[in-house]
Design a protein around this nucleic acid. Structure first.
Length: 283
DNA sequence: CCTTAATCCTGGAAGC
DNA sequence: TGCTTCCAGGATTAAG
C-alpha cells in the first residue's frame, strides 16, 4: 500500500535510472489499467524522460519529445498493490499476468508496471499543464510541503474526525492508513477527535511530527507490509519502526496498555487509549 | 456543498 | 491437507 514515503522512494531511485533515457517501445498488456489515450506514443514512446514528480501518493513520469519541448506525462497511481520495477536488461521469462504495461528504453532498460489487485492504474496526459489543471486539480497539498497555517485552515473547515481528514487526499495528499495511524500516535492525538478542534499550536506540532515521520520513513525505503518494494525489488525497512499500525491488541511501546482498534472512514484504526488523548475532552 | 458508504480486486491468513 | 471465508485498502462514484 504505497503511501508518500514508498512513492518517494520509487521516485528517487527511478529518477537515477531513466531520466535522460529514450523510450523505444511501450506495450500495454491490459488496456483497462490505462486511462486516457493509450497508444504507445501517448505513453511516452519516442520521448526522453525529463523528470519524475510526485504529489502525495501519485508519481508522474514527464517526457519531452526529442524535437519539441512540450511534455506528455504518465501519472501512476499505485493503489493497494501497484509497483514499478526496472531492470537494465530484460530477461526472457514467462510473462507475469499481473504486469500490465512495459516500457523498453534505448540501451536495453525495461520498466514494468505491475498491479495484482488493480486498484492502481496509469493516466496518460498531454502536458504537465493538463496534469495540474485536471488530474491534480482537486488534490490537496503534499504532506511534505504543507505549512501548519494552511493545514490548520483546512482542518478547521471540516467536522470530520482527525483520522478521516488526514486520509482525505483532497485535504492533504500523501498519508494513507499506515502513516495516519503512526502520526496520530506520535502526536498523542485521539483519532476520533474532531479535526476542527485542534489549536494552531497543535497543528504546528502535527506538521512538524509529520515531516519527521515521513522523512525517517523515506530514509528507510518506506514500509513493506506485503507488496511495496523499490524498483529493484528491495523491500523497505520502516515497518520495523511502526508503533501502532498492524499492532492491534498488542502492548503499547510507551505505556504497555493494550492497543485498541476501531473503524474510521472505513479503515481500521489502531491507537493507544492511554497515550492518545491529548486535548480530548471525554463526555 | 458536505459526508458517508459501496465498489472495485487478489493474495494471504485464519478457520474448519 | 484442502477447502471456504474473511480481510486488507486508494480512489472513484453514488447516495444520503
Amino acid at each position: 500500500m504505497p503511501e508518500l514515503p514508498e512513492v518517494e522512494t520509487v521516485r528517487r531511485s527511478l529518477t537515477d535510472r531513466i531520466v535522460g533515457h529514450v523510450v523505444r517501445s511501450v506495450r500495454v498488456h491490459r488496456p483497462d489499467v490505462v486511462h486516457g489515450p493509450k497508444r504507445p506514443m501517448d505513453l511516452l514512446r519516442g520521448h526522453v524522460i525529463s523528470r519524475l514528480e510526485r504529489l502525495g501518493k501519485q508519481l508522474v513520469l514527464i517526457g519531452n519529445t526529442t524535437t519539441g519541448t512540450d511534455a506528455r506525462c504518465v501519472c501512476v497511481h499505485f493503489g493497494m498493490s501497484g509497483s514499478l520495477r526496472y531492470v537494465d536488461r530484460a530477461s526472457s521469462s514467462a510473462r507475469d499476468p499481473h504486469v500490465h504495461v512495459t516500457w523498453k528504453f534505448l540501451g536495453g532498460g525495461q520498466l514494468t508496471f505491475r498491479d495484482p489487485r488493480r486498484f492502481g492504474g496509469l493516466w496518460s496526459l498531454a502536458s504537465t499543464a493538463a496534469l495540474h489543471r485536471h488530474h491534480w486539480k482537486r488534490l490537496g497539498e503534499d504532506a511534505l510541503c504543507i505549512t501548519p497555517m494552511r493545514l490548520h485552515r483546512r482542518l478547521a473547515a471540516t467536522g470530520r474526525s482527525l483520522k478521516a481528514a488526514l486520509l482525505d487526499q483532497n485535504l492533504i495528499a500523501g498519508l494513507g492508513n499506515i502513516y495516519a495511524d503512526e502520526l496520530l500516535f506520535a502526536c498523542g492525538l485521539y483519532p476520533l477527535r474532531r479535526a476542527d478542534s485542534l489549536t494552531p499550536v497543535q497543528v504546528q506540532h502535527l506538521v512538524q511530527t509529520m515531516r519527521r515521520l515521513l522523512c525517517r520513513a523515506i530514509k528507510a525505503g518506506g514500509s513493506t507490509i506485503r507488496d511495496h518494494a523499490n524498483i529493484n525489488g528491495d523491500p523497505g525497512r520502516f515497518q520495523h519502526h511502526h508503533q501502532v499500525y498492524g499492532r492491534r491488541g498488542q502492548a503499547c511501546y510507551q505505556c504497555q496498555s493494550r492497543l485498541a482498534v476501531t473503524v474510521i472512514a472505513g479503515r481500521s484504526t489502531v491507537f493507544c487509549c492511554h497515550c492518545q488523548s491529548r486535548g480530548y475532552v471525554h463526555q
